[in-house]
Design a binder for these strands. Structure first.
Length: 584
DNA sequence: GCCGTTTTCGGCCCGACTGTTTTCAGTCG
């Protein structure tokens, strides 16, 4: 029979955790199921093979009980334990738990007392003023739930990093200029360069003992603040023009390091870190690192002026924010084996640029000048191929004409060299969209999918695999075709294709276009594990988008990519000869 | 339900905030 896929198993484990919460089960039992789901989320390699080999219990967070349940689920496609839980509570009640102001306890109470089974029922119960009569609820709770329901309908869940990050950086500059502010940094998922951001966080400090109130008040009064949600001694939350929420926290200088660390997250990173702290008889919070006495009471506070000191106190190496996801970085930091993450200054070249010859907004020369201004030593001009007619893809004749223009610009004496290339479509049958004779004359060939996205995964994998057989292909472009928040990735067997890319000497790009970030960090980890050569690219359709490099670098760093993994660390001539020489 | 160079049992991350309370439970990050 057909087995369920890994994502289905993960979904069932998380649903069990949520249903156990509704039942009021021990939070530790709930956490055990969530942890097992997290483990599978990060698992590389074939889950089915592991089930059949009976080695599930070797995974962290997998004991006898969960291993048995996952085995049942995998082999039969269903799990009796899960179905029994669903008899006690309808699945739609889980959506009620997600309403702001409602959690599992309250959802269960609403279900038992009022028969609320979904969000619509919750809305009706609030409007009928039935909720305020329940023990533990009141008129204010009822109003807060109604507001929570309204906010869920209104706002898009999360904001793309490329929208949120520049807003955060602009506000960071304003916060630093507030009266009495000593230090301020962006925190939260924006500092970790997560793909999407829920809200913005800024952590700032004033001198020890100084009153943060004047800065708080000045902040709330700044133009661009649409609404003040709440303001306390250490925290002010506002909605900005444009709808993003920004939380500003101000602490004394002494606590800045631990506060910045705390509000940078991620939660999973912190949870594990605190467990490690506990083993060392320390306790960790936004208010510092304290020793714990044998009787459990808090002892002396350690001096922790910055994040590096915090990690030192735990005998760990400093973990860069991009890695703080509990994806193995904690173990590596304890073993002093963290990767030395690639930095933007390590890169000499920028790849994947379009011009007005296809669907770009700026000319070859303008792109060159902009790349030079960014300090790049070379830029690959890679316009579309003929089949991409919507993008005015270049015919072979127009491509040759572009080479003349590139030669002319290269003779201007700019500090950047343009490389002749193309982003060729990988056609439906896996062939490339320029004749081999044309491709052979190019310095850089990126192969990408731009149409017929809806093939099944087997067909798509075969299509791309065939393209890898063409020795003129150098770089696999935006591998999954996803557009974050807009278009799902097309189905393909990523690990098999990365195996083949490694075997055939095809490089893979980490496309830094903010909507793509493709390879994702998770996929880039898989590529690195196989020794696949990587290229950090910008997919720029205008001069301003050459700066997409920052998002490509961030994605690479989130994947633990080092300088040596990235081909654009090489000077232009070596970059080209390497691309050609590694093809097998 | 998982886990173990201080434990095979007794732990399991931390604190703020809110509303409903009269000492705390639930939610949130």
């Amino acid at each position: 029979m057909a087995h369920p896929d890994k994502a289905f198993v993960i979904g069932v484990l998380r649903e069990i955790a949520a249903l156990l919460q509704l039942q009021g089960e021990s939070v530790f039992k709930v956490r055990a199921y969530e942890r097992a789901a997290d483990t599978l989320d990060q698992l590389q390699g074939d889950l089915g093979a592991r089930v059949e080999a009976g080695t599930l219990q070797a995974l962290p967070g997998f004991g006898e009980a969960i291993a048995t349940k996952v085995t049942e689920l995998w082999t039969t496609g269903a799990l009796g334990y899960h179905q029994a839980l669903l008899k006690a509570f309808p699945r739609s009640l889980l959506a009620v738990c997600d309403v702001p102001g409602v959690g599992p306890k309250r959802a269960a109470a609403l279900y038992h007392a009022l028969g609320v089974v979904d969000r619509a029922g919750l809305q009706r119960a609030c409007e009928a003023q039935q909720v305020r009569a329940l023990p533990g609820f009141g008129a204010k709770s009822e109003a807060a739930i109604l507001e929570g329901l309204a906010s869920m309908g209104a706002q898009a869940a999360r904001t793309p990093l490329a929208v949120a990050r520049p807003v955060g950086e602009a506000w960071l500059a304003r916060v630093r200029a507030l009266p009495g502010i000593v230090r301020a940094e962006l925190a939260g998922s924006a500092r970790r360069w997560a793909e999407t951001v829920g809200d913005l966080d800024i952590v700032a400090s004033v001198s020890d003992g100084a009153d943060p109130l004047p800065a708080m008040q000045a902040f709330s009064a700044l133009p661009g603040v649409a609404k003040v949600l709440g303001s306390g001694a250490t925290k002010t939350s506002v909605i900005l023009d444009g709808g993003l929420q920004l939380d500003l926290r101000i602490v004394g200088e002494t606590d800045f390091g631990t506060a910045l660390h705390h509000f940078t997250g991620s939660k999973a990173h912190h949870v594990k870190l605190r467990g490690i702290a506990r083993e060392k008889h320390l306790t960790l919070s936004e208010w510092g690192v304290h020793r714990i006495h044998k009787d459990g009471s808090a002892g002396a506070k350690l001096a922790v002026p910055d994040e590096a000191a915090l990690y030192r106190a735990l005998h760990m190496d400093f973990v860069p924010p991009e890695l703080r996801e509990d994806h193995g970085e904690i173990e590596a930091a304890l073993a002093h084996a963290l990767p030395r993450l690639v930095e933007r200054d390590d890169l000499l070249g920028i790849t994947h640029a379009h011009t007005t010859d296809s669907d770009g907004k700026d000319s070859v020369e303008d792109m060159a000048r902009a790349a030079a201004a960014l300090g790049a030593r070379y830029l690959t001009i890679t316009d579309h191929s003929p089949t991409a007619s919507y993008a005015h893809g270049l015919t072979a004749d127009r491509l040759r004409a572009q080479w003349d223009e590139i030669d002319r610009v290269n003779d201007l004496g700019l500090s950047v060299r343009l490389l002749k290339g193309a982003e060729v479509d990988i056609l439906e049958d896996g062939s490339l969209d320029h004749p081999d004779a044309v491709l052979a004359k190019l310095e850089v060939v990126i192969g990408s999918i731009h149409q017929r996205h809806k093939m099944d995964a087997d067909q798509m994998t075969a299509r791309i695999s065939k393209a890898f057989d063409n020795p003129h292909l150098h770089i696999w472009g935006h591998a999954t075709g996803r557009l974050i928040g807009q278009r799902e990735p097309y189905g393909l067997h990523m690990e098999a294709l990365l195996d083949k890319a490694a075997a055939k000497g095809v490089a893979v790009e980490i496309n830094g276009a903010p909507k793509r970030l493709d390879l994702s960090a998770a996929h880039a980890r898989l590529a690195k594990a196989r020794g696949v050569a990587l290229v950090l690219s910008v997919d720029a359709h205008a001069t301003a988008q050459l700066d997409n490099l920052r998002y490509a670098v961030a994605t690479a760093r989130r994947a633990g990519i080092e300088k040596r993994d990235v081909l654009t660390r090489l000077p232009a001539a070596k970059f080209v000869s390497h691309l050609h020489g590694m093809r097998r």
